[in-house]
Nucleic acid binder design. Structure first.
Lengths: 240, 240
DNA sequence: GAGTGGTCTAGACCACCCC
DNA sequence: GGGTGGTCTAGACCACTCC
């Protein structure tokens, strides 16, 4: 069951084991899984290792613990990839849609005061400003304007902008992304945006402003994204 | 520094200690905090306890670890209560606004097929359906329709509906809330909604559908909430 | 080679739940 | 009183980074 010589850590093997038992209904919803002491006997590992595995599964929503009673399988009908930052390209791939980006503009500007605050660069620092439309299956989904410090990415080839920026950050620049802050609001399309997105004027749009941060806590880019309300929605999971 | 006789667990005290050091710039951004072995000496506790505290602070975004190098303070300009499910009442309290709820309707209906799927009850089970307007500082913010299985809450006093439902669940019914799934989209106000929210027809609204779950994974309620786009926005944090 | 975080063991005592 | 998870100790070996 557990291979102590595997290069996969034991606690990961235990996680996989428990997930498999849940999947096969061996450990069923709302029933108690074997206690930590029982698992020690069954799997021949220390309590700390068991607790490490169970703790991770609790955080991921597979199990819940009741002190003094036991550890139970959680009833979870749903998805599990919530609250993950994903690139739009990845989202569309998962939906089986082919994404295409049309670059509308590409400039290097000097940071205004307000931009220098939002993007955490110094005022007048050179900033790359790009606007593009993102089109899936011939329908325009979003009009996007993003800003990134020129210092961080140097010279960007324009062809990069037709693909996934996230891919470029991670695979080409080898940056370690960590998280993003997003602000979501509902607005009405103005003249220009409605033309770009091929909607009526005043059509409802989701405006999502996003700040993307790296592992060391430094900001990477700032994006304003106007999504067509009839084409896009956001799913999130909130923890009490 | 560390009180081993305190009823507050040692690892919590260590977390508080490290947070305080960060706040006072004693541990500063991007610099290494004392190594785990050094902290063992400094605080006179075991390595496991140190790691427990540091692990929690990493999860909360205060620190980041680099294997072979050390543990560093993360540069975080921002808020920390992201991705928490909060009641609307709590949100408004934090903004210093006084929230008032006006109940528009209160019915007991039999679950339709689609509702029984959304709310995970059986078809034709009795369901409480309430609609209300939520008003802060005399401005209508949201029009809300919520559904809850009658079996779960029994007879609800109508006065409960003028206050915070979440409070009622937690403090009166002693239910343990765990998480919610939310779907956010942008729509245009129809005739009825625009009248209730005192907006123009076709005004942009945030429609947020929310399913609230308890610790055992069972669903508690389903809510459709229409927020005025000019009055409300959503902030979230996504992890890569 | 010295220092770091990552993993793991073998114990211990506690508060809480249930019978 | 016996079982559960929650906390804590005192060790150990590993892979990795940096010099």
């Amino acid at each position: 069951m557990i291979d102590k010589n595997s290069k996969l850590p034991i606690y990961c093997q235990i996680e996989d084991y428990i997930k498999a038992q849940i999947k096969s209904k061996e450990f069923d919803v709302d029933t108690m899984i074997p206690s930590e002491r029982e698992l020690i006997e069954m799997l021949n590992v220390s309590r700390h290792t068991i607790r490490q595995a169970i703790g991770n599964l609790v955080n991921e929503g597979y199990l819940y613990r009741l002190a003094g009673k036991g550890t139970f399988v959680k009833d979870r009908h749903l998805i599990y990839k919530e609250n993950k930052y994903t690139s739009f390209t990845e989202d569309m791939e998962q939906l089986g849609k082919k994404l295409f980006s049309k670059v509308l503009s590409f400039d290097i500007v000097n940071a205004s005061e307000s931009l220098s605050n939002t993007l955490s660069v110094n005022e007048n620092d050179p900033v790359i400003r790009v606007s593009r439309v993102r089109i899936a299956d011939n329908v325009p989904l979003s009009y996007e304007i993003f800003y990134i410090s020129k210092e961080l990415v140097g010279d960007m080839d324009k062809s990069v902008l037709e693909g996934s920026l996230i891919d470029y950050y991670e695979k080409v620049l080898k940056l370690k992304l960590d998280h993003s802050f997003e602000t979501i609001e509902s607005i009405a399309a103005d003249q220009k945006t409605s033309e770009i997105l091929e909607t009526n004027i005043n059509a409802p749009l989701l405006l999502i402003r996003s700040k993307l941060y790296m592992e060391n806590g430094k900001q990477l880019h700032y994006v304003k994204n106007y999504f067509r309300g009839d084409q896009y929605r956001v799913n999130i999971r909130l923890k009490r």
